[in-house]
Design a protein around this nucleic acid. Structure first.
Lengths: 218, 218
DNA sequence: CGCTTATTCAATAAATTTATTGAATATGTT
DNA sequence: AACATATTCAATAAATTTATTGAATAAGCG
């Protein structure tokens, strides 16, 4: 193969992967699937896409080495191909937030609006977790908590938080987390708990970032 | 800003960056600019794009936080916005080569066809470089060597290699490198030097990968 | 077997991206 | 000032991606 043809083939292949990642719905699907595998129905419910449109997006992602699937009865479950893909996705999002001023500003504004501007980093959490006065709170839906969660976290889904306030000790400092840096469930939890007088901060990132750190692929 | 709007804004912003990266010519432009800044003319010559088409691609990249530019007389010079972008580009390419079987196969085939299958990694180079029997050869164009090169490398552009054979000691092992893992200049140099009876291998990566390792951003 | 349901496939419409063409702008030279 | 040159801008054409629609397929149930 001559050099020109080789480069064209390589760059076309790279471009195929990047195109498949370039759609906003698909990026959100990656965030969702980084919590654990999901059926098309689950993806449809969260994204608001039509069944056929979601399926089309999923096929594009599957044909571009982003997702894999398995079938069980009526249902097809999708998941990310591997942890390396998740780590790459995290690198992209972290780069964008840190280096693209507009995006960093939007995230900061969102955090401030919800009183979660003093988010805790994973490194900080690692130190804090030995403190008995810390309560780590997973506010994702139960099915996601069951797929995987940060060690030691308790599960109270955001939409049940109000009913479970009595289960939360007032003297503890709460660290709330959810799906990742753009997940608003933890922001909402911080806002609500703040209003109720609890001492609470959100985790800057989410379960998937913690997971990758545990896997220690680097 | 409500949660839905926030996520839409974030993912739209991420998608804009990824779309701007998703074109094969643009990926090659990034490889070129990772050697150092270049004028539009230089980009036109290497890519074969028309002036106006190249300019349009460059504007898209500039408006998506990938490139920056400066003007000097008639000429406009483009460069990557920062080392972090280059590091992200490298992560993407490394991921694709390692995890997408088709692409890995194409690269391996290219290496074998040019007798450069036993490429030297940067880590290996670091150990080898203290050996006086090693000659590090930069086969990129001189302007790129001048913009930046691996410490200790000598410059012989690939298209002048035949005329400079007499400058290369026969008892040394040569490590040839160029613009990155997809650059074929080093492959061509290995092929030629092999045929002339020299002991030669190529560096797996290129100057930009070396540079990022030096900067030690991680 | 007939009916129901989850998902994919195929075709078409709509939206977006990329290539092309030519004019406009900025800079340099005589 | 006129002319030349590098690049960008604007408009249009062509190519590609995404949304929509409805049929097809696979699996489950009575």
């Amino acid at each position: 193969m001559d050099g020109r043809k080789f480069k064209d083939t390589i760059y076309t292949g790279l471009s195929k992967l990047l195109k498949a990642l370039s759609n906003p719905y698909r990026l959100e699907i990656i965030e969702m699937l980084s919590q654990g595998e999901k059926s098309v129905e689950g993806i449809v419910q969260t994204t608001g896409l039509s069944f056929a449109n979601a399926s089309q997006h999923l096929q594009v992602m599957k044909n571009s080495n982003i997702l894999k699937s398995r079938k069980e009865g009526h249902y097809v479950y999708y998941s990310l191909v591997n942890n390396e893909l998740l780590y790459l996705y995290q690198h992209i999002t972290k780069y964008a937030i840190n280096e693209i001023a507009e995006l960093g500003k939007i995230l900061n504004q969102q955090r401030e609006d919800n009183k979660s501007g003093d988010a805790v980093s994973l490194a900080e959490l690692k130190e804090m977790i030995y403190n008995n006065n810390i309560l780590l709170l997973d506010v994702r839906p139960p099915i996601e908590y069951k797929s995987g969660h940060i060690s030691g976290a308790i599960s109270i889904p955001m939409n049940e938080l109000l009913e479970h306030l009595k289960d939360i000790p007032r003297e503890k400092e709460i660290i709330a987390y959810c799906r990742g840096p753009f997940c608003v469930l933890a922001d909402e939890a911080v806002k609500l708990l703040n209003e109720k007088g609890y001492k609470v901060r959100r985790l800057d990132e989410g379960y998937p970032e913690w997971k990758i750190k545990q896997v220690e692929i680097i």
